[in-house]
Amino acid sequence: MKWLMQLVALALLLACGTWFGGWWLVPVTAALYGAWAFRQRSAVLTAGFAGALAWGALLLVDAAQGPMGRLLDIFHGLFRVSGGMIAFMTMAYAALLGASAAALARTLRRLAAPV
């Protein structure tokens, strides 16, 4: 439950950061989270999931405000892969940003901590 709450809270933070700041706030926020939750084994996974969740939610916000289907069709014509694949790549990229930043911060924090 605690993990789920952390996940949702972090996803919310990442979504807000992206909306008001930009994509670069995903690794920054995830790094801060990784440093804060360095004792948790699941911190990296949480950050990755939260990144994907945040950007997935933002895609839903986009879809609610316009013809997402047409954009997916255009992606298909443009990149020769399905539009859904581009959506998946988008979330995967956010996950990579979140997880790698959290992992790096967590490792640094653990290196700095006494064994």
């Binding site: 992206t18 909306w19 930009g22 994509w23 670069w24 950007w55 933002l58 895609l59 916000v61 986009d62 879809a63 405000q65 316009g66 013809p67 997402m68 047409r70 954009l71 790549m89 988008t90 990229y93 956010a94 940003l97």
Partner: peptide
Amino acid sequence: PLGAFLDPAHGIWSVVRAAE
């Protein structure tokens, strides 16, 4: 650059919000 491009708030996805 994929960061700005895929950013759902400001990147290519956001054009959906300006469709109408």
